[in-house]
Amino acid sequence: MNAIRSIPEFMGWLDSFGFDVGDYRISIYRALLIVAVGAGVLVSGWFINMFVKRMFRRMTRLDGAEQLLGEKLVGIVVWLGLILIGIDILGISLTALTVFSGAIGLAVGFGLQKTFGNLISGIILLMDRSIKPGDVIAVGDGTTRTFGQVNRIGIRAVSVITRDQIEYIIPNELLMTSQVENWSFSSRDVRIRVPVGVAYSSDIELVERLLLEAARELPRLRNLLEPTVWVTGFGPNAIDFEVQVWIDDPEVGIGDLRSDLLKLILKKFRANGVEIPFPQQDVHIRDWPPRSEGDS
Results as ranks from 00 to 15, higher is better:
T162D: 01
R163Y: 07
R163T: 14
R163N: 12
Q165E: 11
Q165N: 12
Q165L: 11
Q165Y: 12
Q165K: 13
Q165A: 06
Q165T: 09
I166K: 05
E167W: 00
E167V: 13
Y168G: 00
Y168A: 04
Y168D: 00
Y168F: 13
I169T: 12
I170E: 03
P171R: 05
P171C: 05
N172R: 03
N172I: 02
N172C: 12
N172V: 02
E173F: 13
L174F: 10
L174A: 12
L175N: 08
L175R: 03
M176E: 07
M176Y: 04
M176T: 14
M176A: 13
S178H: 10
S178G: 11
S178R: 13
Q179G: 08
V180N: 04
E181P: 00
N182T: 06
N182Q: 07
N182M: 07
N182Y: 01
W183D: 01
W183V: 05
S184V: 09
S184K: 09
F185I: 06
F185K: 12
S186F: 01
S186Y: 06
S186N: 08
S186V: 01
S187Q: 09
S187P: 01
S187N: 11
R188W: 06
R188I: 02
D189H: 02
D189F: 08
V190K: 02
V190T: 10
R191F: 11
R191C: 00
I192N: 04
I192L: 13
R193W: 03
R193I: 09
R193H: 10
P195Y: 03
P195K: 10
V196F: 00
V196I: 15
V196M: 08
G197L: 05
G197T: 08
V198D: 00
V198C: 02
V198T: 12
A199C: 05
Y200R: 07
S201Q: 06
S202H: 00
I204Y: 05
I204D: 14
E205V: 10
E205G: 01
E205W: 00
E205R: 10
L206D: 10
L206Q: 15
V207T: 05
E208A: 09
E208T: 10
E208F: 03
R209A: 09
R209T: 15
R209D: 09
R209P: 04
L210M: 00
L210R: 03
L210Y: 09
L212G: 04
E213C: 07
E213F: 09
E213H: 08
A215M: 13
R216Q: 13
E217P: 01
L218F: 06
P219F: 13
P219L: 09
P219S: 11
R220T: 10
L221A: 11
R222G: 13
R222V: 11
R222C: 11
R222Y: 08
R222K: 15
R222D: 06
L224Q: 15
L224S: 10
L224H: 09
L224N: 14
E226D: 15
E226C: 07
P227A: 14
P227R: 09
T228I: 13
T228E: 15
V229H: 08
V229P: 00
